[in-house]
């Protein structure tokens, strides 16, 4: 590797500035728009190729489904490259400008301008954290999909020391008239789940959009039976996914950062648009 001298330090500064330039950001964003527009037409009617990514993770998916259907998944490879470049660009740009902003903090008389600038950088950092969360989620998640549970029978989640038991199921039948097509069907299932390790246990209610959290694992309801009053099959069971996803915290923290930044930005933007009071 070449040692850093005055001559090539100029090149490094140029490279750093180019990497963090807004022009590069705009080019990357436009390329992302083109790529995602093509993605829409590639996924449309072929979501079956993409759905397994959520269960097997990104690398196994890229090696199998993506490689086998390159015509429809090529956009995803380009998407990953563009997104990585955008993260790099955002990080360099934000680091550079945030550093300058903090250094000039004492010289600035107006708090408003400082916080306005800070809000945009908070959004940038939020977006980077969200994307890091996605990467962690798709590379490091442990997924135990489609676990079928029948009432009162304990099941061991393979590869873990977790034991799960479906203790009760409440499947109220909808008998109203407003939701005509759902008459005689179950629309709000409620399931009691007991999850345990050798050391501890927990009983909690599980439903759609209401997962159960336990010792870093999350249990999601995927399907249930019976779904109708007069179902052909009378079997009582539920199907759950168990996930251990270390990326979740990152992307929710990222969302909070982004929304916090956006809120500050909107407040300062509205205040800056209001006409100043003229002293009487």
């Amino acid at each position: 590797m070449e040692p850093i001298t005055r001559k090539n330090s100029g090149k490094l500064v140029w490279l750093w500035r180019s990497l963090g330039s807004v022009r590069l950001a705009v080019v990357l964003l436009i390329l992302l728009v083109i790529d995602l527009s093509l993605a829409y037409f590639s996924i449309n009617g072929r979501s079956i190729i993409f759905e397994p990514m959520n269960q097997v993770g990104i690398w196994p998916w890229l090696n199998t489904y993506a490689m086998a259907n390159l015509r429809y998944t090529a956009w995803f490879f380009i998407f990953l490259v563009l997104l990585s470049a955008l993260v790099l660009n955002t990080l360099v740009c934000t680091t550079d400008r945030l550093w300058k902003l903090l250094r000039q903090r004492k010289e600035q008389k107006s708090n408003k301008r400082f916080f306005f600038a800070l809000s945009t950088h908070t959004m940038h950092l939020g977006m980077v954290v969200i994307l890091i969360g996605y990467l962690i989620s798709y590379t490091m998640s442990q997924v135990y999909p489609s676990l079928t549970l029948i009432p009162q029978k304990e099941t061991i989640v393979a590869g873990t020391n977790l034991r799960v038991k479906l203790t009760s199921m409440t499947l109220p039948i909808y008998e109203g008239k407003r939701l005509e097509t759902f008459t005689g069907m179950v629309i709000s299932p409620s399931v009691q789940l007991r999850v345990a390790t050798p050391a501890t246990e927990r009983t909690a209610s599980l439903g759609f959009n209401n997962p159960v959290y336990f010792q870093g694992y999350t249990f999601f309801l995927q399907r249930f039976s019976p779904t109708k009053n007069a179902n052909m099959s009378n079997a009582h069971y539920i199907v759950i996914d168990v996930r251990r996803d270390p990326g979740v915290l990152f992307y929710f923290v990222g969302i909070s950062f982004f929304l916090g930044g956006l809120l500050c930005y909107v407040i300062f933007w509205i205040r800056s648009r209001q006409p100043r009071r003229v002293p009487s």
């Binding site: 993605a39 996924i43 449309n44 759905e51 959520n54 989620s137 959009n209 997962p211 990326g247």
Partner: peptide, 11 residues
């Protein structure tokens, strides 16, 4: 609902 950051069912 699904336990994943992106749902691919809907393009």
């Amino acid at each position: 609902g699904w336990g994943t950051p992106v749902v691919w069912h809907d393009p």
